[in-house]
C-alpha cells in the first residue's frame, strides 16, 4: 500500500514538473530551422549547378561532388568555431543537412584530441555520427535484400 502511494506520489510529481517546465518556442525555432536549413540547401544547389556546368559532370556525379563539398564546409566551419553558434540558433536547420553530419564527426574528433590521436581523435570521431552509418547502411542492405528477392 505504501509502495503504491510512493509510485503515485512520484507520478504526480513528474506531471507537476512537466507543467512547470518552460515550453520551447515552437514557432521561432521552426522559422529559424526553415531559414537556415533552406539556406544550406540553396548553397548545396548552387554548388551542384556550378560543378555540373563547369566540370561537365553527370547529374549523379555532381550530386556526389556537392555532398563532398558540403561535408568539407560543415567540417571547416566546425573547426573555426562557427557551426555551434549557428546550431544554437538554427537547431535542426543546421543539424539535419549533411553539414550537420560533418559537425557531429568533427566536434568529438577535435574535443578528444588531448586523449591522443588513436584513442582520442580516431576512436571518438564516430561517437555521435556512428549510429547514422549503422542504421543507414543496415536499413539499405535490408531494402537491397528485399529488392533482390522480389526481382529474382
Amino acid at each position: 500500500m505504501q509502495k503504491k502511494n510512493q509510485t503515485q506520489k512520484k507520478k504526480d510529481y513528474q506531471k507537476y514538473v512537466e507543467q512547470k517546465a518552460p515550453k520551447p518556442k515552437y514557432v521561432r525555432n521552426c522559422i529559424w530551422a526553415f531559414l537556415v536549413g533552406g539556406a544550406i540547401c540553396t548553397i548545396g544547389q548552387f554548388v551542384h549547378n556550378n560543378v555540373e556546368d563547369l566540370l561537365g559532370l553527370t547529374h549523379l556525379a555532381a550530386t556526389n561532388v556537392t555532398t563532398l563539398v558540403m561535408i568539407g564546409l560543415g567540417a571547416f566551419f566546425t573547426g573555426i568555431g562557427v557551426y555551434d553558434k549557428l546550431g544554437k540558433l538554427a537547431g535542426a536547420g543546421s543539424i539535419v543537412p549533411i553539414t550537420g553530419f560533418a559537425n557531429s564527426i568533427v566536434s568529438p574528433a577535435m574535443e578528444f584530441k588531448r586523449e591522443g590521436f588513436v584513442f582520442g581523435v580516431a576512436a571518438r570521431m564516430f561517437n555521435l555520427a556512428g549510429p547514422v552509418l549503422v542504421y543507414g547502411i543496415t536499413s539499405s542492405v535490408i531494402v537491397g535484400l528485399i529488392y533482390y528477392l522480389i526481382y529474382n
Partner: peptide
C-alpha cells in the same frame, strides 16, 4: 570525406 576532413580539422 567525413573521415578525412574530420581528422584534418581535429
Amino acid at each position: 570525406a567525413a573521415v578525412v576532413f574530420g581528422y584534418l580539422m581535429a
